[in-house]
């Protein structure tokens, strides 16, 4: 039964690729920042030191919680994550690097958080975990760690492309009372100071990240809410379509950068 599901998924993926080929995908867009830099390069030496030592990095408390959750049976089906995926250090290697990704059956792009919840609700018979909640951030941090050092490599071709385009549109839309687009800060002005904040290129390769301000691991969409709020804009909900497409676009912007999760940021 489980295997049949996998096969169906793989089949749909192949079909999607074939359709895209037949239709001829639009050309890969050109990046505003062709050689992106990690936010780590914009952090102070003290913050970098915390990230570069896995003991100093408090996100490893989340990693340990995530590892325990991976092996814990939850829900009506009697499964843990490990029941299907066995050893995460093997099966989850590379997963963070290629997420978000197009989900053929759902016919939309899903984030790592959403994929965990799809597994929970559809396979495990367990309730979905709230986006950016501690238990979900623990699992995604543990999964993301397995891709550390691997280059971000999301697939925006074929049926994924319309979702990418929507994310790009969100990125480039001025919003809020301050009337700024994401790129107003992170493309036009990186390397400059907004008060004390050295503006980075807004690369997402370090998420989930331990944020010194919140003193906890945060998900990317939590940070996105903060940004929209800061320009005095009305933020879309975490886990919704708009931020999911934006997260997909942001991943492509960071294409090639090593996954740093769990990083440490101010």
């Amino acid at each position: 039964m489980r295997r049949a599901g996998w096969l169906a998924g793989a089949g749909a993926l192949a079909l999607g690729a074939a359709v895209a080929l037949a239709q001829g995908s639009p050309p890969e867009p050109r990046r505003q920042i062709p050689n992106p830099e990690s936010g780590l390069n914009y952090a102070t030496p003290e913050t970098r030191a915390i990230q570069e030592d896995d003991f100093l990095n408090p996100a490893f408390l989340w990693v340990e919680e995530g590892e325990q959750a991976w092996n814990r049976v939850e829900g009506t089906a009697g499964y843990s994550c490990a029941s299907c995926h066995q050893d995460a250090t093997v099966s989850m290697r590379g997963v963070r690097a290629r997420m978000p990704a197009y989900h053929p059956r759902l016919q939309r792009v899903v984030t790592l958080e959403q994929q965990v919840n799809i597994c929970r609700t559809e396979r495990m018979g367990a309730p979905a975990l709230p986006i950016d909640s501690r238990p979900l951030n623990a699992i995604t941090t543990y999964i993301a760690l397995q891709s550390r050092g691997m280059p971000v490599n999301v697939d925006i071709s074929g049926p994924a492309r319309p979702f990418f385009d929507k994310g790009e549109q969100f990125y480039n839309t001025r919003r809020g009372q301050l009337d700024l687009r994401c790129g107003s800060c992170h493309e036009d002005n990186y390397g400059r100071y907004l008060r004390a904040d050295l503006l980075s290129q807004g690369m997402s390769n370090g998420f989930p990240t331990y944020r010194l301000k919140e003193q906890r691991v945060i998900s990317l969409q939590f940070r996105l809410q903060g940004c929209v709020n800061d320009v005095r804009g009305e933020s879309p909900p975490m886990g919704g379509e708009e931020f999911t497409n934006l997260e997909f676009y942001l991943a492509w912007r960071a294409q090639g950068l090593p996954v740093e999760s769990p990083s440490v940021r101010r």
Binding site: T44, E46, L212, Q215, R266
Partner: peptide, 12 residues
């Protein structure tokens, strides 16, 4: 201590 703390909530 860092002469400039990037965020006051976590200062090594």
């Amino acid at each position: 201590a860092p002469p400039i703390a990037e965020n006051g909530n976590t200062v090594p």
